[in-house]
Design a protein around this nucleic acid. Structure first.
Lengths: 339, 339
DNA sequence: TTGTACGCGTTATCAG
DNA sequence: CTGATAACGCGTACAA
């Protein structure tokens, strides 16, 4: 078991000073060709690599980005991570991932730990509980300490930082308009409760679109789902009591359960009812019928967030105070669940 | 923007020495009650937290685990990450995630970077390309440097380290036996090429099970899929040319595409053909019909791997040479795709 | 009871 | 051309 080789150990072995070794390895013109060669050969042979931790301490930069997300077993979030990782790697950054599990406390703890030297900045989507509590002290504090934060998807408008979101409202309008253009008169909405920011926006988009098409807003066509525990039952119950010609679901899971419920009622998709959903995930692609969706652009979102963060990190101190919000356009992917 | 507060800055402010501050904050009995109180109050007010990087450098421990996986947009891997994260957090460790994208080069680079001080050890599933090339120098080197490595799922038998795997062969036998018990005579196999270790094991399990049931092995019932790019077409083509009464697929994507292909041929699942798959993911649960699967136990796998690694990290030097391989039992989850 | 000195691994500056 | 020294932030043995 060959222990780690350091500048010091090389210096001792070759009987020169540490700084000579350091300079030689950096090809400093101060050092003679001979010694450089000798040192380089030795270092290469013993596979010397500088210690990141020591460098971080010295440079006050870790070259790693902290990602905090509510949940990782979730196609959208993994896509975002992939997007972040790609640009981060290209720029020489690493990525450290923490999960809040939608818990406020865990979000706070994770941020505090990472903020103490482990990362240069954060990319995050806030926990549901945080949005509910409206307690943002941890966010404000880390930003005030000079740590840049980029929020994506579930973000907090009041907080001063860069943001990357999709145009949820517009995407929802796009979806509903698509249904209406196909002749829909009674569009049902399967959504989340209002304190989830994206759920609320998509709901608003739905309402706006009905309005601009002079269609009545029928509260009995709207189902707001509180938690993800028994949503299937709730959707089934709901669809028994309502008759609609099409459904707009704010995520693919709601859509899939709706299709299942319809099928047990003897209705088929898209013949009797069209279904469109937000979030273009694995389910949407492979389900039968495959789902017409609004693409949430996870990859692009991650990439953009990473670019924003790295940009800020590598900018001189005084130019850091300008925050921007990037709004990604959604796109509609037509598949089999609509006609 | 209040810059980071350090021991030094507190010391200067309070006009005491750095070590006094350090001791006071650690409640050392050496320090008088008065100064302790004063220092603690001050530190709390300015929200002092020790710098992780400095601690890492000093303790030669980072308290973070490196995870290297081939792909993150994949339900199984995210489940494993979740499992790792849970026990890691409980034990005071953080988790840094790197993706190899199944590329050998990226795997090597990621390992080298993280091995230089960024992590205390690794949990990994090796890239497909690495399994193909059979070049394991990076693994051997980091292990020789005293960095513990735990492999899961796609592992390399020749490498000396802890491993967590499921009993792929047994799981496959379990699946095929289940079909046979239901009366299957002609079981088709949808699998990957042999250099993917888990694919090969599942294939072997399939063959063994047929044999022990005195069923003939019919090569025309076996499809080995090279890459994930056009697998749907290949499966469709394959199923056109073969007639079987049931299908065992080594992952849920193959299974789903098989069902789709069967349906276009006018066959229905499970009435005409039963389908069973490895990997219990989102698709399996929500697909119609939902899939009977062999559960790959991602959560458990991650948790076990993390426990093994942390155990090794916190064990004294001399006890580290014993490596163990934990084999997790699979379980069969019966759903709608078999009868 | 408090402070000094040293070391973790690195680099930059300055002296020889 | 080479080497000594200080500094990044922290903890601790030892000295005062």
């Amino acid at each position: 078991m060959n222990k780690k080789v350091t500048l010091k150990s090389i210096a001792k072995e070759l009987d020169v000073s540490i700084s000579t070794v350091s300079k030689a390895l950096k090809d400093s013109p101060e050092i003679s060709k001979d010694t450089k060669q000798k040192i380089k050969a030795f270092a290469k042979f013993y596979n010397y690599k500088p210690n990141n931790i020591a460098l971080s301490l010295k440079n006050r930069k870790t070259k790693t980005l902290g990602i905090i997300i509510p949940e990782i077993v979730h196609h959208f979030f993994t896509t975002v991570i992939k997007g972040i990782e790609q640009v981060a790697n290209d720029e020489g950054y690493n990525v450290i991932v923490c999960l809040s599990n939608n818990s406020f406390d865990k979000e706070v703890i994770n941020m505090e730990i990472l903020a103490n030297g482990s990362t240069d900045g954060f990319i995050m989507s806030v926990a549901k509980e945080t949005q509910q509590k409206k307690d943002y002290h941890h966010l404000v504090e880390t930003i005030n300490q000079g740590m840049p934060v980029v929020m994506f998807d579930r973000m907090i408008p009041e907080i001063n930082c860069d943001k990357v979101i999709i145009d949820d409202k517009k995407g929802a309008r796009q979806a509903v308009q698509f249904l209406i253009d196909k002749g829909a008169k009674k569009v049902a909405l399967l959504t989340t409760v209002d304190y989830v920011s994206v759920g609320k926006l998509r709901t608003t988009g739905y309402l706006e679109c009905l309005e601009s098409n002079d269609l009545p807003i029928d509260e009995s066509l709207i189902l707001k789902i509180e938690d993800m525990d028994h949503y299937a039952e709730k959707i089934e119950e709901f669809l028994k009591q309502t008759s609609c010609d099409s459904i707009f679901a704010v995520n693919e899971h709601f859509a899939v359960e709706a299709i299942r419920a319809l099928r047990t009622q003897g209705k088929s998709v898209p013949e009797d009812v069209s279904v469109i959903a937000f979030t273009d995930g694995e389910l949407s692609k492979h389900f039968i019928p495959s789902l017409t969706t609004i693409n949430q652009k996870g990859l692009e979102m991650g990439a953009t967030a990473a670019k924003l963060l790295i940009d800020k990190l590598e900018r001189p101190e005084d130019e850091k105070e300008l925050y921007q919000t990037v709004i990604l356009e959604t796109s509609l992917i037509e598949r089999e669940s609509t006609k």
